[in-house]
Nucleic acid binder design. Sequence first.
DNA 1: CCTTAGTCGTTATGATATTTCATAGCAACC
DNA 2: GGTTGCTATGAAATATCATAACGACTAAGG
Lengths: 158, 158
Amino acid sequence: MTDPAFEAHDHHACIVDGVAAVERACVARGLQLTQTRKRVLEILLSEHKAMGAYEILDVLRAEGLGSQPPVAYRALEFLTKHGFAHRIERLNAFIACSHFGDAHAPVFLICRRCNSVAESRSDVAKSEIGRIAKGAGFVIERTVREAEGLCPKCVEAA
Amino acid sequence: MTDPAFEAHDHHACIVDGVAAVERACVARGLQLTQTRKRVLEILLSEHKAMGAYEILDVLRAEGLGSQPPVAYRALEFLTKHGFAHRIERLNAFIACSHFGDAHAPVFLICRRCNSVAESRSDVAKSEIGRIAKGAGFVIERTVREAEGLCPKCVEAA
DNA sequence: CCTTAGTCGTTATGATATTTCATAGCAACC
DNA sequence: GGTTGCTATGAAATATCATAACGACTAAGG
Ligand SMILES: [Zn+2]
Ligand SMILES: [Zn+2]
Ligand SMILES: [Zn+2]
Ligand SMILES: [Zn+2]
């Protein structure tokens, strides 16, 4: 078992398919994928890495799509709110969702050497954090599960 | 099964015992629990809530123990580095460790209503995130596992 | 036309974190 | 005693991340 983010793949298709899927979802759910929102999604899809809000803003600014922080944050809020992107708490950064579809509780593997980020989905109910919460009578609404370390390539390189 | 953070307990003992345990550990490991470090630990222990660095700094400043951000951050770095406190990524804030002792991979339950935070320990190797990483050939060095939701009290109140 | 909800652009501000350079205290060693 | 190395501090500036607030624009529905 390997992960797209950690191995070679047709990345152009990654981007095209990702945008198309979100476009379909927005139509289906009556959401407006405005130009800025779409562009931010493309920027996030352009690499399997997490990008900071200001890094994204730099690109928008260069393209004349906005220059102030709220422009980027609003687009990111839209994308994360609807599950098209995720926020990586450990990095204060964002990444496009790579398990697109329904709502899910993502798990991230973050390589500290090459900065790649892989997303896995997981069932909170069956996870350890779910078990702990249940035992404590705690009702989970959202989870943050991120592991930092070395990806297969970087382990090999080291 | 319940959690200290989520139920009534002798909180004064919580603080005293917590400081005493860290003092012993510092002696044992040859670490220096300086006045500022000790005071920051006490501040963190004073509540089962996460506190922001500047919130802590305000207290230090009022007591003449330092007024600049690095003063608070250095003490927090010391405490987190040695496992006496943890950083809650979701909140950009810090909390005293409540499972004091050896190195561990903490799991946090964060109540969004009353802001209490409970810490559990867990074995990464046996957790879902560990299983996912293993399958991907990813070597974990650190994990962030935080659940946000409602604690037992707040569930009942709602 | 008018209203309303959503979006957008901008200014200003707040909150969090790091970098940099300089200094103080202390113990080991010669 | 003087030097060296180490750890902790102090102080200033800067970098990074995030939100509040307000007015203007626009599309959809009556
Ligand atoms: Zn996802
Ligand atoms: Zn890597
Ligand atoms: Zn702990
Ligand atoms: Zn609560």
